[in-house]
Design a protein around this nucleic acid. Structure first.
Length: 467
RNA sequence: GGCUGGAUGGCAGAGUGGUCAUGCAGCGGACUGCAAAUCCGUUUACGCCGGUUCGAUUCCGACUCCAGCCUCCA
């Protein structure tokens, strides 16, 4: 099975081959923790979650690192604005982020490093850059000298002249070149800071990632990802720093970038204000529905976020309905296939994912399997197709709940009717129907409907679900 | 202005040089005391103008429009 991935560095799809046979190192830029994450922040987390699941099918050892940026001027600003300790703020929103994406079915990374835990490594790296003539100190700052790196600009594919044309930032007087960027900057007493050879200060954003990658995954890693809005300047700068520390060897072999989620006027972002938080969506929808909505578009394409999520809900329902229709009482879920052999997984789904993580095509394959499973005529083929469907669900991170929980789960509301109460009422209604007492039967149906219970009269009796 | 990437049916969204995406919605049927749900079936498409080709939504060129980045950003 060949995995192909679109590499931003080359601008092409390339066949993926790890540096060390059988071992994959993968890094994803995580959140800056100063507030609740919005649904756009979940796109790379979910996409990389699927990628890691896929890679683990093929490679015995996959090390996935996703950082948390917990020292940053936005956090400082939020701390000052709320009057709360800055460290506490970061801790809190890091936890909220972890909870949010766990609800979306994202498996925790192998290592989740914090920038604040890597100050010595950051300082080391900066010293190496200074020694190599790639960085210099000026007025308490340390700056990376962009002209010292002949390959600068090759990731974002823009020439140094292009960058100047659009420059909208005022150039600090101490910069030797307008494009030079900060590796270390001084902190005032009220701001977080660490002692360093250049005085008390804090690291720039780009160097944090470079240092954490180097420490946890080594000087050269296989895959590095993030949102396409990070390509420039964040990843370009990161790439430059690490390459210069490596003596010219690129530190990343495959760069992956996801497209932006748009809502209304354009890209969802806090500065525009057109955001919806994951937390808010989770109060109205199952996390799996959110995940399905994100997977329904290709990760590199821009996806229009539809807040109603009705389509994703209905589509996911269809897959769960197929599981319900083929229920064999085994109580298996997608999670049952977490460690299954490669041949347990549906090849159409695997092939789609191997093709630069084509999740829409993989979902189409899931619907095809669901349809086949419902129509299969022998119990053996029903069982086999159902197993494939669940295994595919594991790769995509959906179908993780028992069917009964999906349709009957009590959800958020504490006053929801308990399942045995619902079933007792259904029995009463069916007795009334038997006795042709339709007024009474309909009254019970209305009562249940008012409690959010929808009945389905079918050949095999009456089924129900919460809506 | 520069750089990147888009434009597919009512909507979302894959893909392909000639046959089918898929889902949602719609429509028809089955089932039902009725209704809903469910199940089965099904209509509708490839921005605009040229070119290459036996044949283009798919390849090439121009045009129009859109988005992202060039500032913090997933």
């Amino acid at each position: 099975m060949d995995i192909t991935l679109h590499n931003t560095q080359s601008g092409k799809r390339e066949r993926f081959e790890p540096l060390v046979p059988g071992e994959v190192s993968i890094y994803l830029c995580g959140p800056t923790v100063y507030d609740f994450a919005h649904i756009g922040n979940a796109v790379p987390a979910v996409a990389f979650d699927v990628l890691v699941r896929l890679l683990r099918l093929e490679y015995p050892k996959v090390t996935f690192v996703r950082n948390i940026t917990d020292v940053d001027d936005k956090i400082n600003a939020a701390g000052i604005a709320t009057g709360r300790p800055i460290r506490e703020l970061g801790e809190r929103y890091a936890k909220e982020y972890q909870d949010d994406i766990a609800a979306l079915g994202v498996i925790p990374p192998d290592v989740e490093p914090r920038a604040t835990g890597h100050i010595p490594e950051i300082v080391d790296m900066i010293e190496t850059l200074i020694a190599g003539g790639h960085a210099y100190e000026a007025e308490g700052h340390v700056l990376f000298h962009v002209p010292s790196d002949p390959d600068y600009g090759t990731l974002a594919k823009r020439s140094l002249e292009d960058m100047l044309d659009g420059a909208r930032v005022e150039v600090a007087p101490y910069k030797r070149d307008p494009k030079d960027f900060v590796l270390w900057k001084p902190s005032t007493p009220e701001l977080p800071g660490w002692e360093s050879p250049w005085g008390r200060g804090r690291p720039g954003w780009h160097i944090e990632c470079s240092a954490m990658i180097r420490k946890h995954l080594g000087p050269v890693i296989d895959i590095h990802g993030g949102g396409s809005d990070l390509t420039f300047p964040h990843h370009e700068n990161e790439s430059a720093q690490s390459r210069c520390v490596n003596g010219g060897t690129p530190s990343v072999r495959y760069w992956l970038h996801n497209g932006m989620l748009t809502m209304g006027t354009g890209k969802m972002s806090k500065s525009v204000g057109n955001i919806v938080t994951i937390r808010e969506l989770l109060s109205r929808h199952d996390g799996e529905v959110l995940r399905y909505a994100l997977l329904s578009g290709h990760y590199r394409a821009q996806l229009m976020w539809n807040e109603s999520l009705a389509q994703a809900q209905s589509s996911l329902d269809t897959l769960y309905q197929a599981l319900r229709d083929t229920d064999d009482g085994s109580n298996e879920t997608a999670a049952s296939y977490a460690n299954a052999d490669t041949d347990a997984f549906p090849s159409d789904v695997v092939v789609a994912l191997c093709n630069d993580l084509n999740t829409p095509q993989a979902l189409a394959a899931m619907h095809a399997l669901a349809s086949q499973a419902r129509r299969a005529d022998s119990p053996e083929s029903v069982r086999a197709l159902r197993a494939k469907l669940l295994a595919g669900g594991w790769l995509l991170g959906i179908l993780t709940k028992p069917v009964a929980v999906y349709f009957h789960g009590v959800g958020e509301s504490a006053d929801a009717m308990a399942p045995d109460v619902v079933e007792a009422r259904i029995e009463e209604r069916n007795a009334a129907r038997e006795a042709k007492d339709f007024a009474r039967a309909d009254a019970i149906r209305d009562e249940l409907a008012a409690g959010g219970i929808q009945l389905e009269d079918g050949r095999a009796g009456t089924r129900w679900r919460r809506v």
